[in-house]
Design a protein around this nucleic acid. Structure first.
Length: 855
RNA sequence: GCGGGCGUGGCGGAAUUUGGUAGACGCGCGUGGUUUAGGACCACGUGGCUAAGGCCGUGGGGGUUCGAGUCCCUUCGCCCGCACCA
């Protein structure tokens, strides 16, 4: 009689035992090669969700697998603990952000530990701990000294709901990424990290990241948005200055019919001082929102300033200067020249303003005299026309010639522009890392001396009013200027929390060090060998971390180019959605099936099933991992996470799928505890392979092919296939036939399955390993090696096609020749029938694969 | 608009790296068994059509090839990222 597998008891037992034995401490004390696997650390929101379970399961499989492959593995965990939700909780419930955060961390740590993750918990830290953020403040000062931090006044994105500014990356469709509020443009003095100084490096280094998904590299490339072109100066009539524009089409300069400024361009501001209509137009543009879609709806609008600018190539020619709503202040120079014939936007603007359209590129094969521009600008290649000294040149040639001409005339020259902007890190919030700067009326901005770090967050703050509590805390805010000793004010802003997560991966190498990143601890581990997390961080977090790595290198902390040598982006965990007739959402555990219909448990209201979407609280389609772990155990949850769906794709959470995973856990335990044939003693060698019955020899080949296949699958992140392969193996083992040596083969098979599943279902595997008679830690056992001799079959099944259609299969000895395969195929009854006496023109033989008889 | 990805049984997906027996593994479903009962367990079956021999099948159409889910062209559908970036 087989015993029932008690997952809860087994899992608790081994979790405690692993912890006591310190099995997962990263040592760096022996000669083993290092391997650093890291999953994106969680925000302590309260409880873990299924996305965490999926992420950390994958990371744990890699960690356990690499450990078995002989690596000294670093697999740490920590908390991305600063951020707005803690302040919201404080505001709503009167609990201090620190208290709320640390309580959540305690809960979530327990939940993660119940998953049986092989984590070195001794390295755990939270970014809200002064022991972390004091070093971040030191890094800020280092960056400041290195010229990588800058305070400047800029048009910034103001989120009126969160009451703070946001980085460009945090504005999505003109709205705040957290609040969803329409973003306003405000001009404020703020701190920036000068990420644009690394724009080219960040772009070029993408090529050197072969183990990153193409998609992420492409997204970053687009985000950096490098454009090559030219700067051109248009002298302004009646002023002793020139208007500088950026263009990627200097070849079309002769087609210019106007210039236009962004509403926020300094010249526009200055002109508006003496032109109230212009001032009103600018105000209107800023009011209409900055969402590009809003402008799209409003159409292209402009205001003729009356000012004229001179053409750089033709001093006799002047152009009108407009302020236009479609010109962006934060790209290029905030000013453009318009060539309507060869730019769609300029064409639309020119048509609405009645400006001339001068074709200067003749499409191939067209008559230069007859080029007409209708509703569509011509943006293709061609030959320059109406363009003076450029006439006759191709677009590429004309660009080069025009750039040279601009330079000759001191009217501009080659220029590169980026979409990427500097990273605005000031946040008008309490729960973040204080910026270690003091504002002094006589000394200006003064850094806090290093010996005075950390600048601690004061604990006695109030959240009963909107705005930044630090700004209201007089005792904290007012301090002596470190330079002159006079009255000073602390910078009351805190750093964007993306700063915290831009270097935590390095800090894990020396989590308790009293300097930020001691080289002797950090260098052996970095870069991270395998980083795993969600695709939603493709630009923000991953770009910032890359910038930090380059900045840290410049400051002498690191000697690596890139933080993450390998990156894997996992898919989301999805679930069906449930709504009633009023459109209210219901959690899966709030509904049930009655008489074949889906209804609410509580009052039987009919429920409609909606499409499967990423689990979210707003759609109420979440399943609590803790409930699953309590009901089935962590191994079942882990197994389900890795089965069926490829890890980079979205995973559909289903009850039946979880039950299927549980069935397999129970079935594997049954197979170990009551195998179909009595097991040979532990440690007994398999008898001579040739002495075994045919079916046992085949089974042994299956065992060794499974080792090879699973190994390759794990290396390539094909977890779903790895699981399927082991299931195939255990299916084959269940069907074993009793004969001489069967007990040995059964043991070999069970031990192999146990080892191969160790990374996936570690508790079950550890328990099974002991049940099989071992007294070693499975978690410390080396990975099995396949016997190369057993990876090849001695008999192969070869398909035989007639004219490309399969008509038969034949058995042939491995290593058979072409002639042997051909004669066996021609002798086959099915083949002869299909041929029906027709003449054979050709026979193609791929030994071991296929025979194709062509008539 | 620009860029990228994906279309395979009732469902999730294998096979695409290297063109060579399509549908591994699982879910669901069906039949039978077992059990006091079970949403448990066991066995067998399960792409479609066909009485059979067989025919048809990887979104549609075309091409290359002895042979195409895999390569090429074209078309349709869905998803994702960016979006007046000059």
């Amino acid at each position: 009689m087989s015993e029932r597998y008690d997952a809860q008891a087994v899992e608790a037992k081994w979790q405690a035992a692993w912890e006591d034995a310190g099995l997962f401490r990263a040592e760096r004390s022996d000669g083993r090669p290092s391997y650093y696997v890291l999953e994106m650390f969680p925000y302590p929101s309260g409880r873990i969700h299924m996305g965490h379970v999926r992420n950390y399961t994958m990371g744990d499989v890699v960690a356990r697998y690499k450990r078995a492959r002989g690596f000294d593995v670093l697999h740490p965990m920590g908390w991305d603990a600063f951020g707005l939700p803690a302040e919201n909780a404080a505001f709503e419930r009167g609990v201090h952000p620190a208290e709320w955060t640390y309580a959540n961390i305690a809960t979530m740590r327990g939940q993660l530990q119940s998953m049986g993750l092989s984590i070195d918990w001794e390295r755990e830290f939270a970014t809200c701990h002064p022991g972390y953020y004091e070093h971040q403040q030191a890094l800020f000062l280092d960056f400041f000294e290195a010229g990588l931090v800058e305070r400047k006044e800029a048009w910034v994105n103001w989120d009126p709901v969160d009451g703070t500014v946001l980085a460009n990356e945090q504005v999505v469709d003109g709205r705040g990424w957290r609040s969803g509020a329409l973003i306003e443009k405000r001009r404020l003095a703020q701190w920036f990290f000068r990420i644009t100084r690394f724009a080219d490096e960040l772009l070029e280094a993408l090529e050197a990241l072969p183990r990153w998904p193409d998609k992420v590299r492409l997204m970053q490339r687009n985000w950096i948005g490098r454009s090559e072109g030219a700067h051109a100066l248009f002298p302004i009539e009646g002023r002793g200055e020139a208007l500088e524009v950026f263009t990627t089409r200097p070849d079309t300069l002769f087609g210019a019919s106007f210039c236009a400024l962004s509403p926020n361009h300094p010249l526009a501001t200055s002109l508006a001082e003496s032109d109230s209509a212009l001032a009103a137009f600018i105000a209107e543009c800023n009011l209409a929102g900055v969402g590009e879609r809003d402008i799209e709806a409003a159409g292209k609008r402009g205001y003729d300033t009356g000012v004229r600018v001179r053409h750089p190539f033709d001093a006799d020619r002047t152009l009108p200067l407009y302020v236009a709503n479609f010109v962006l202040m934060d790209y290029g120079t905030g000013a453009i020249f318009g060539c309507p014939a060869h730019d769609q936007r300029d064409l639309e603007f020119a048509r609405s303003q009645g400006l001339p359209v001068i074709p200067v590129v003749c499409p191939p094969g067209e008559d230069a005299g007859a080029v007409e521009i209708g509703a569509e600008a011509y943006v293709g290649d061609g030959t320059a026309i109406n363009s003076g000294f450029l006439d006759g040149l191709s677009v590429a040639e004309a660009k080069a010639r025009a750039i040279a001409a601009l330079a000759e005339r001191d009217a501009g020259g080659a220029a590169v522009s980026y979409r990427l902007r500097d990273w605005l890190i000031s946040r008008q919030r309490y729960w973040g890392c204080p910026i270690p700067m003091v504002h002094c009326s006589s000394c200006g901005v003064v850094p806090v001396p290093r010996e005075a770090l950390p600048v601690r967050l004061p604990e006695d703050v109030t959240f009963d009013a909107p705005g930044n509590p630090l700004d209201r805390h007089a005792g904290w805010k007012h301090t002596a200027c470190p330079r002159c000793g006079g009255p000073g004010e602390r910078d009351t802003d805190t750093m964007d929390t993306f700063v915290d997560s831009s270097w935590y991966f390095a800090r894990f190498c020396a989590a308790r060090a009293d300097v930020p990143l001691p080289e002797s601890d950090v260098a052996p581990w970095l870069p991270v060998d395998q980083y795993i997390g969600g695709i939603e961080h493709a630009v923000l977090h991953l770009l910032y971390s890359r910038f930090f790595t380059k900045a840290l290198k410049r400051c002498g902390y690191l000697d690596i180019e890139e933080p993450f040598a390998g990156l894997f982006t996992q898919g989301m965990v999805c679930h069906e959605t449930y709504r009633d007739a009023d459109g209210r959402w219901y959690y899966p555990d709030e509904i049930e099936t009655r008489a074949g219909n889906l209804v609410t448990r509580e009052d039987g209201r009919p429920i409609a099933i909606g499409r499967s979407e990423a689990m979210s609280k707003s759609k109420r389609n979440t399943v609590d991992p803790e409930a699953i772990i309590e009901a089935y155990g962590a191994d079942t949850a882990r197994l389900f996470m890795l089965s069926d769906s490829p890890p980079e794709r979205d995973l559909e959470w289903t009850d039946t799928g979880v039950k299927g995973a549980w069935r397999y856990v129970a079935a594997l335990w049954r197979l170990v505890t009551s195998p179909p044939v009595p097991l040979a003693p532990c440690g007994a060698a398999v008898p001579g392979h040739d002495s075994l019955a045919t079916s046992l020899r085949g089974l042994r080949r299956t065992i060794h092919k499974t080792i090879a296949g699973v190994t390759e699958d794990l290396e390539r992140f094909h977890f779903n296939r790895a699981v399927a392969r082991v299931r195939e193996l255990t299916n084959a083992l269940s069907a074993i036939e009793a004969s001489l040596g069967a007990g040995h083969v059964m043991r070999e098979g069970l031990e192999t399955a146990t080892r191969l599943l160790g990374p996936v279902v570690p508790h079950l595997a550890e328990e099974a390993w002991r049940r099989l008679g071992h007294d070693s830690w499975l978690a410390r056992e080396p990975w099995p090696e396949p016997d190369p001799a057993l990876l090849v079959d001695d008999i192969v099944i070869v398909a035989v096609q007639v004219d490309g259609k399969k008509r038969a299969t034949i058995s042939l000895p491995a290593g058979h020749g072409k002639a042997e395969a051909e004669s066996a195929a021609m002798a086959d009854g099915g083949v002869r029938r299909a041929l029906a006496g027709r003449d054979v023109r050709k026979v193609i033989v791929v030994p071991g694969r296929i025979v194709n008889v062509v008539t």
